[in-house]
Simulated scan of single mutants.
Amino acid sequence: MIRLSGLQKIYQGEAGPVKALDNVSLTVQQGEIYGIIGKSGAGKSTLIRCINLLERPTDGTVTVDGQEMTALSEAELREARKSMGMIFQHFNLLSSRTVLENVAFPLELAGVSMAEREKRVLPLLELVGLSDKKDVYPAQLSGGQKQRVGIARALASQPKVLLCDEATSALDPQTTESILALLKDINKKLGLTIVLITHEMHVIKAICNQVAVIEGGQLVETGSVFEVFTRPQSTTAQDFIKAVVNNKLPEALAAVISDKPAADSNVVVRLSFFGATTNEPVLAGLIRRFAVDASIISGNIDHLQDTPYGTLLIELSGRPEDIQNALNYLHARDLGTEVIGYVARHAYAAC
């Protein structure tokens, strides 16, 4: 549906050229919700604006629905943009127009008759839950309602692609959740391909199928949200995930743990469970098979959309050879196993 190939964007700054995008290539499939996450200045806003050529790349190609956008004339590009809606962080509503008139504005610019505009806009207001606000002005709306107007306006031209530029960044957490649920519903009902950029991992976690992590204008990691979230490869992805998953060691344990084994030391292990493995009695099987004791330090279970995942921090005690056999057993199973460190026997329990 969307294919970016070798994308580069160079700005001329006062101190010389600035490379905002550096050889970016990615593919978004039809009907996906594709997230692009990065810190401020990473290049994500430039990237999403290159998709509809609000920013023209210095090099590389942008292909949308089989059409190479970078090869189009200005007139052809204006026509092609009609198949791509865009919503923004700051809503950009016209204060002197009602909700209905704001949503209808792109149709008005396209020369659609007033009767046809109303016929197309009213179902959109129902879709975003604002049917009762059609004659209200933006100043009378909450932030979440304003963003719903922005979403309806982006859908007015019946686009195939919806681009979301930090669409929830100006909203409180509860309103953010409602907007994300709306985008997911729109994706399901209309089969719309959605590309969104954000600096918040919980947004990616909530609704995206695929994710690209951008840092310094380069893609440092791509993959399914489940893969990146549960087995992050880049430091940037790991930093984002720490914001939504608490993997911090308890203070009492952090005070006594060592990265080097000692005589009679216990092993602290973090287990990560994915999908069906969250329901397996792993610790019970471990204790039955090996002469070790397993003490649970902390744990949690969450969901990545419909897929359960969990983490468990445990302390293994026993003879070194039995502990190693137990670790080999854990490594052989379909779960993540990470040795965090070592503690003297009974040291953590005494804290």
Rank of each mutant, 00 (worst) to 15 (best):
R97Q: 12
M114H: 14
R117T: 01
E118D: 09
P123E: 09
R117P: 01
L124R: 01
E118P: 00
P106H: 04
N102D: 06
R117L: 05
R97K: 14
L141Q: 08
S95N: 14
T98P: 02
E108R: 11
A115M: 05
L141E: 09
E126M: 10
A139V: 12
T98A: 09
A115I: 01
G144R: 07
L122T: 13
K133G: 03
E108H: 06
T98S: 15
E118R: 15
L100F: 09
I151T: 03
R117G: 01
K146T: 03
E126L: 08
S113N: 11
L107K: 01
L141A: 08
L109T: 04
E118F: 01
D135F: 12
K119V: 08
A110G: 09
D135T: 14
I151K: 01
V149R: 03
I151C: 04
K134I: 11
L141I: 10
E126N: 14
D135V: 10
R148V: 01
Q140Y: 10
M114N: 12
R97T: 00
L109C: 12
L124E: 02
L125V: 08
E118T: 08
V121D: 02
L124K: 02
G143T: 11
K119T: 14
V99M: 06
D132V: 10
E108G: 03
V103I: 08
S131Q: 13
G144Q: 08
Q145L: 11
G143S: 12
L122N: 09
E118W: 07
P106L: 02
D132C: 08
E126Y: 08
G150R: 01
L100G: 00
L130H: 06
A139S: 15
E108V: 01
S142R: 12
S96V: 09
L109I: 12
L107S: 04
K146S: 06
Q145I: 09
E118A: 05
A110Y: 05
A104R: 00
R148Q: 04
K134M: 15
P138Q: 11
D135Q: 15
L109P: 00
R120H: 09
Y137P: 06
L100N: 00
R97D: 04
